[in-house]
Amino acid sequence: MQDKRQGTSERKNYLRFPLPTRLLHWIAAGAILTLLWSGFWIFNLHPRLYWGDSGYFGAPAIAELAADTSSEETQMSLIIGDWSIDVTGIMGRVNRQPYVRIFNFPQDFEFGGTRALHFTAAWILVVCWIYYLRHLLNSGRLKNNWLPRRGELSLRNLATDFLNHLKLRRIRGEAAREYNVLQKISYLAVMFVLLPLILLTGLTMSNSVTTAWPILFDIFGGRQSARTLHFVCAFLILLFLLVHVIQLFIAGFINHGRAMITGRFEIVPEKE
């Protein structure tokens, strides 16, 4: 790295992401997209959410896509508790089964194959998570880059950072070397809260795992509660993904995108 210590007025680049970070980032990205995609189709087969041990057509749901076939054209509505909205435009119906229409129902759709894909991608993500944790600890990235520093969690700093996000402000200069505090919190939340939670709620849907560890039922409140929490986690991960990509454009698509591919990140001087 060439650092001639001539202040920040000169452009310079440095290795922002070492190879393990980049490799694991892209494998995880592929696995997560696959899981969201296959999970979406699995959800479509029974688009109702319940709380407790059991839940089925005929039992009350806490949220559902419901079909009303009394009129000529099937009316679809999304019902959450007492609240209901007509969604005929984005929902469809195949074999008496309501589903989310956003993508056309594939003619050669294999439900069994989709589940197989989901479990395979889950294994890849689990292995990836373990190696990423090892990398975070061994390289010091967890301590140096992810954990908020002293004072960073002050209300004043959180508020400043929040306002920076609202203003869609691009961070320049040496400050761009560090993650901001909200970024740190969101990475920690995905790595140490959402991913473990989505794995455990997924395992609570498994008959054999809950036979071996029935305590999972007690932790999550039953098989259907676990399923509901699983989809809530999936939704939050999707939300993270969207914000993550939007932030990439705000922070600089080329510079940050390149950093996650080649590792090199360029410090762009602050405007005068």
Binding site: D53, G55, F57, G112, Q224
Partner: peptide, 12 residues
């Protein structure tokens, strides 16, 4: 016992 279908529902 609790019967669980791969579609997502379950019933006792």
């Amino acid at each position: 016992t609790l019967h669980t279908c791969d579609e997502g529902w379950s019933a006792i």
